[in-house]
Each structure stands twice: as structure tokens, then as C-alpha cells.
């Protein structure tokens, strides 16, 4: 299952709700303002880091660059993708849940 988050962790409870619904073999894509969850030293980044290693993390590169988040600071487990790669992710996973 691919979970897609799009809201900033600061403005919404969905970030936490989504993490509660995330299974250990699933994937999470951060889109739009959800990429603020990757701000270095933020509490959300810490909670993303402690997700089981089997959870795959993706983030939309254009959304990160648009918001001035430095790519160098991102944890290694976050894979940056573009829209064609998002299409592939949606095909690879049998179900897509947007939060």
C-alpha cells in the first residue's frame, strides 16, 4: 500500500493519523506541504526516522526544491522522485491512500 501525505505536519493531525495507519511493509510518499516533515532537526523528521526500516519513504523532489529544503540534509532513506516515478509507485502498490 502506498500512503500519500500532502499536508504540513504543523497544521494538521493527518501526519500523525497516517503514521498510525502505516503498516511495516508499506510506503509513504510526501507530497506538497508534507515535505515540511523533512525539515532537519524537526520533530516530524525524528518520527519518520524511527519508522521500521521496511517502510519505504519517498518525497516529491520538485516540492522539496520549491520550499527551500536542502537536499543535502535529507536522511538517506528518503528517496526523491518525480511524477513519472510517482506513476510507477502507484502501479507497483496495489492500493493508494491519500491522507
Amino acid at each position: 500500500m502506498l500512503h500519500i501525505l500532502r499536508h504540513s505536519p504543523g497544521s494538521e493531525t493527518r501526519f500523525a493519523s497516517c503514521l498510525r495507519g502505516l503498516g511495516p511493509q508499506q510506503s509513504l510518499l510526501l507530497l506538497e506541504d508534507a515535505v515540511y516533515g523533512l525539515l532537519p532537526r524537526s520533530r516530524t523528521l525524528a518520527s519518520l526516522q524511527i519508522l521500521p526500516g521496511s517502510v519505504r519513504l519517498y518525497a516529491m523532489e520538485a516540492d522539496i526544491l520549491a520550499r527551500g529544503i536542502a537536499l543535502d540534509d535529507l536522511p538517506e532513506r528518503v528517496k526523491l522522485i518525480d511524477y513519472p516515478a510517482m506513476v510507477q509507485l502507484c502501479i507497483y502498490h496495489s492500493k493508494v491512500v491519500s491522507w
Binding site: 500500500m1 498510525r20 495507519g21 502505516l22 503498516g23 508499506q26 492500493k95 491512500v97
Partner: peptide
């Protein structure tokens, strides 16, 4: 919740 999301074909 995770099992519930799994159980339904569409969420």
C-alpha cells in the same frame, strides 16, 4: 487501523 486499510479494496 493498518489492518483495516488493508482489508478494503479502496480507501
Amino acid at each position: 487501523i493498518a489492518a483495516l486499510l488493508d482489508h478494503y479494496d479502496q480507501v
